[in-house]
């Protein structure tokens, strides 16, 4: 059941001052309007829990759905900033969420999609990154219990970034083994590579590793040179480039 969005119609881009009601963003970072989210999961309990977490953290839950059809209807109706959807939903209980994510990204370029799954598979992550350019995320379902991490992921997607589960990145790095070009990277560079692959910005990487943005930038440049990658224009392209590199030996 959709909750009416406070402040009435929400216009995304360009943001119209005055309509972007300040009251709708009680705890959002800076004074940006609250991020509007549509949730899809066939478990009502989990969905309600997620809705509470998001609402407590300054998001507006604009709609909820229990299957892919309901999700598409809610997206048509609400045009949210971000959709958070389970990958496995009725009727076939396979990868509806993934298919829905790609369709939403194609039909609504302004709507980001975060796909949650009980299992993370690199193949699905790569497929999502490749078929749904920008504003996508793929996280293990239990990451939502790390509330700060989870809400940060939703915000990054709303801002146009991409989020990949650390487990996927770890699998990719492990599978590449210690052979090949990755050998050339220093330990610090490998840490930075992993964070880049998760979709972190230079600033976030710096905060995490206690490095200045300038230092991070230097490391990133070195990584790209060593791996023979072309410098990426934005965070999303950077994620795609790194993940694709790791995936294809």
């Amino acid at each position: 059941m959709p909750e009416p969005a406070p402040g009435g119609a929400h216009v995304k881009e360009p943001v119209v001052p005055g309509l972007a009601d300040a009251a709708a963003a009680p705890a959002g970072p800076a004074s940006a309007p609250a991020i509007r989210v549509v949730l899809a999961d066939d478990s009502v309990l989990f969905r309600e829990g997620l809705a509470r977490v998001l609402a407590d953290n300054g998001f507006v839950v604009a709609g909820q759905a229990g299957d892919a059809d309901g999700l598409h209807a809610a997206v048509e109706r609400e045009t949210p900033d971000v959709v958070v959807t389970d990958i496995r939903m009725p009727p076939t209980n396979t990868s509806e969420g993934l298919v829905a994510a790609q369709r939403i990204r194609a039909d609504h370029p302004g709507v980001g999609v975060l796909v949650l799954s009980q299992y993370v598979e690199t193949r699905q992550a790569v497929k999502l990154l490749q078929n749904a350019p920008q504003r996508v995320g793929y996280l293990l379902k239990d990451r939502v219990s790390e509330i700060a991490e989870f809400t940060d992921a939703v915000r990054r997607i709303a801002r146009g970034g991409s989020v990949i589960d650390p487990e996927v990145v770890a699998q990719l790095l492990r599978r590449r083994g210690d052979g090949g070009m990755l050998e050339l990277l220093t330990g610090r560079e490998r840490d930075i590579l992993a964070l880049m692959a998760q979709g972190r910005s230079n600033r976030a990487i710096g905060e995490r590793l206690f490095l200045s943005p300038k230092t991070v930038e230097t490391h990133v440049g070195a990584i790209f040179t060593k791996l023979g990658l072309l410098p990426a224009a934005d965070d999303h392209r950077r994620v795609l480039a790194v993940i694709t590199y790791l995936k294809n030996a």
């Binding site: 829990g49 509470r52 209980n93």
Partner: peptide, 24 residues
């Protein structure tokens, strides 16, 4: 597997969420 996914795993994910909110 399906029963675990739809049952125990889903409930535990929800429980983790509840715990996190309590912790906050």
């Amino acid at each position: 597997e399906r029963n675990l996914h739809d049952g125990a795993q889903q409930r535990m994910a929800t429980l983790a969420l509840e715990l996190a909110m309590l912790r906050d």
